[in-house]
Write a protein that binds this DNA or RNA. Structure first.
Lengths: 350, 350
DNA sequence: TTGAAAGCGCTAACAC
DNA sequence: GTGTTAGCGCTTTCAA
């Protein structure tokens, strides 16, 4: 092997180390470390010299090394079922913003399916990789919860509750009530519900259960019966909603209104109805939940919840624990509101 | 300090260290390391003992320590403008899947705005945190590109090209041609284009430029003129498309067709048209790009591209460099196809 | 206010 | 095939 005339790679760049900076500034590594991290027991003059030396060498500490030495990673784990779903993408964006501003990196864990989730909690890749965790709308059983607790690090859940863990969420039952009462006040009695809780991915989101239960309760307290044959569930997303609507249409009587667990399902249902030329809201009214960005486009009546904001709040809760050692468990419930658009109207009088 | 009766926190869990495992298995730490990482120069019997000891102590190596010692992080950086946009969320999901399966963690960098992007490239938080990077559809100028190169690590771009860097993308000009020719063949001559390149976030996606340029070329080669007053741009997303359409409608003559740079813009335009009671495709035809999951719902004619797949391909390219030292620069161009739906038809004959 | 020294928990090069 | 020995690049007592 002889040297190439033109070296293809010079190898990994040799980063300046804390010793280089110390040497250049004429101080010890310890002082460099203190200066750079803003400790107050450094004289202004020394700090100045150190900062200049660091700048000069474009030095920044190796996260690995400082993490190893300090026991902190300055990284937060974000565990999400799907980034591709509107709700999660926004929650992630909201949390990200706050965490990044606070100087944390974000490690993303995208589960995708219940099987992956189970493997995830078994192997717990979060161990020693992050300082804290936020889980998004994850339905967790005993085993998962234990695994999370075993991490023994700050934890916040978004859109779900674990006993003893701080959370940010909406009141699902109350939100459903807004939707159902809206329909009831318009005169609907035959109200179907489309849920995603039998999704093919095997999650079974907590909010799904809560919304189904909320639906039954809301119907009951309106003096109506939630007929089980009108409670259908489809798989995840638009296609699931579309198929669930098809199933409803195959039933003996078409309900006058449909409440969907979340907007993507409602939107899928709308597509099916439109293709079948069933007038909305003339023959069937449709209400969704979440106020997906597409809801305004398809003129969907829905119940809005602030998603970005919830992500941000979850992140802030975490930072409080991290920075101030705040240890109190809080449960932040953010308000929802009915957004009436064009897919709901009084039932047709025939 | 005396012991509490009920310790509130036992401190960070004391993870078993490699020495604990070595002791339990009756071997040296080096052998534990070798066994656990599947090196072949370990006798089966020894490895077995080590694995059992590790299992027993639920040991897994500290990523920080092994990273520091080996110089590898087993982490990939994913740099994305917005996770909330359909395209990016799907690209992230596609890449994530492949990377996670290969045992890599994913560090997410969500830029959100051009200002954040600039800060990002200045501070380069990727330094020493990741083994490789994939950037999604990022428009990068000289300075950014240099910063990326300075990292001197494997890099793949998705939906953009940097000279000398592997990429996965569609042929934007060709894709635009599909859309434009479709309109032209239907008899349209007054075709407007809505782009997002003046978005308020200050990116100016490369694909945006390419698609605008592609539009002009396609028009020209169809013997038509791309009238500049019919090329409008709005800010990012649905609202941008909606406003751009409003602007078009305020012009002296309404075009008979509108081509939008991407589906969200097209969908926003559709909303505006619907609210103004302008028949689509009766009076105005609309074509989008990407085949957003909502395109089928609003029955939008569009040009489809495989997004999840591109994410996966980008990840695989990276893994090849990482695993096999593959060093060739490749440019993977994936095919697009026209999806004709209900928003396009021949121009009204009056 | 600063420095010296001892790790943090691994991997890798080199012996044996 | 396995153990020994150095680090990797920081932070953090502890002394000065």
């Amino acid at each position: 092997m002889q040297d190439d005339v033109q070296p293809v790679r010079s190898g990994r760049p040799r980063h300046a180390s804390i010793i280089d900076v110390a040497t250049l500034a004429g101080v010890s590594p310890a002082t460099v470390s203190r200066s750079l991290r803003g400790h107050h027991n450094v004289s202004p003059a020394t700090r100045q010299r150190v900062l200049e030396a660091a700048e000069e060498l474009s030095y920044s500490a190796s996260p690995q090394a400082s993490g190893l030495a300090s026991g902190r990673t300055r990284t937060i784990g974000l565990v999400v079922p799907f980034v591709t779903r509107w709700f999660f993408a926004n929650a992630v964006a909201g949390a990200y913003q706050v965490l990044a501003d606070a100087g944390y990196d974000v490690l993303l864990y995208h589960l995708g399916s219940a099987a992956t989730r189970d493997r995830f909690f078994e192997r717990m890749p979060l161990t020693r990789r992050v300082d804290a965790v936020v889980t998004l709308a994850l339905p967790l059983d005993e085993e998962h919860t234990l695994a999370l607790r075993a991490l023994d690090m700050p934890l916040v859940t978004l859109g779900a509750q674990i006993p003893g863990v701080s959370s940010v969420r909406i009141d699902d039952a109350a939100a459903v009530r807004l939707a159902v009462y809206h329909l009831v006040h318009q005169g609907h009695e035959d109200i179907a519900m489309i849920s995603g809780d039998q999704d093919d991915l095997g999650f079974g989101f907590l909010s799904s259960q809560d919304r189904c239960e909320g639906f039954r309760q809301a119907m009951a307290s309106a003096g109506l019966r939630a007929r089980e044959e009108l409670m259908v569930s489809g798989e995840y997303g638009i296609e699931g909603g579309a198929r669930a609507m098809t199933a409803l249409m195959a039933g003996p009587t078409l309900p006058t209104a449909v409440f969907a667990e979340y907007d993507e399902l409602a939107i899928g249902a709308l597509r099916t109805l439109r293709r079948a030329s069933i007038p909305v809201p003339g023959r069937v009214s449709v209400v969704g939940m979440d106020d997906h960005e597409m809801a305004s486009v398809v003129d969907l009546t829905t119940v809005a919840q602030p998603v970005l904001e919830q992500g941000g709040t979850a992140a802030r809760l975490l930072l409080e624990v991290l920075d101030r050692g705040e240890t109190e468990v809080v449960d932040v419930v953010v308000p929802t509101r009915l957004v009436v658009r064009g897919t709901t109207a009084a039932p047709h009088p025939n």
